[in-house]
Design a protein around this nucleic acid. Sequence first.
DNA 1: AACGCCGCCTGATCGC
DNA 2: TGCGATCAGGCGGCGT
Length: 280
Amino acid sequence: MPEMPEVEILVRHLRPLLRGKTIRRVSVRRERATRPTPPREFEKALAGSKFKGLTRRGKYLLFELLGARRRSEPAVLTMLGHLGMTGRMFVALKKEKLLPHAAVVFNLGDRNFIYEDQRYLGRMTLDLSPLNELGPEPSDFSPETFAAALKQSRQAIKIKLLDQSLIAGVGNIYASEALFRARISPKMAANRLTSAQAKNLLRAIRDVLNDAVELGNTIARKTVSGELFYFSNDGESDYERFRVYDRAGQPCLNKCGSKIQRIIQGARSTYFCPHCQRTR
DNA sequence: AACGCCGCCTGATCGC
DNA sequence: TGCGATCAGGCGGCGT
């Protein structure tokens, strides 16, 4: 499940591999992959363009390209990528066999840049409108503004943290992790957090995400084989990575004597320590 | 208009 | 052994 740290790691990995490369040909192999941009339009718009920059916003990847020379001056294009639940993006030698779920293939000459997605919940598109719905990056959010924003909602804080229009980049795993570090109950109504609690929570969100990027970078370096790079969730690499996520029934790492509990909020799993996170 | 809920997707796992 | 049900969960869209 890629959240902000996984996307950040991927962006840092891909940036130097793509910079300056010209797209010879684009092949959309899954019609859904470029929604709402029509696949043929997507292929046509990007063929011949050159990768310039790559940045991240929330869980989105922003590919900046210089359009193919048409008559007038070259157009700047932005392509938006999202990994959904199971998306992967990597550069591979053209001669390598395509994975069964390759959704979009960008040919760069002797290499392919591939977006692959087992469940097709992610996408690669020219529609930039989702960016308008995003809240601030955790690093840009002033603690006062964050605290004030929480006052607007009666939803449980855990559910609220998943709202990308409030704060960008927090997903199901790091929402639980941040609340544990801030010692705040996931069930607490967002508008009932004190200003101090909100500030602690923002601090915890930043710490959890930054730590994950650092740890992930270590793992990623080990995972790279040749030109192939994967972000994978199903791995040995998750060892001791999370303090509460997926640890139901196991002892709280604060050694309080309680066991981590799993509850369902908004149809999603939440993990927390009922002793250390007693706020309501 | 904040909020709840469903659909999209495939593969792993579980119960009968 | 086989097969349907359930779960994984980010996000867009829709209904209230």
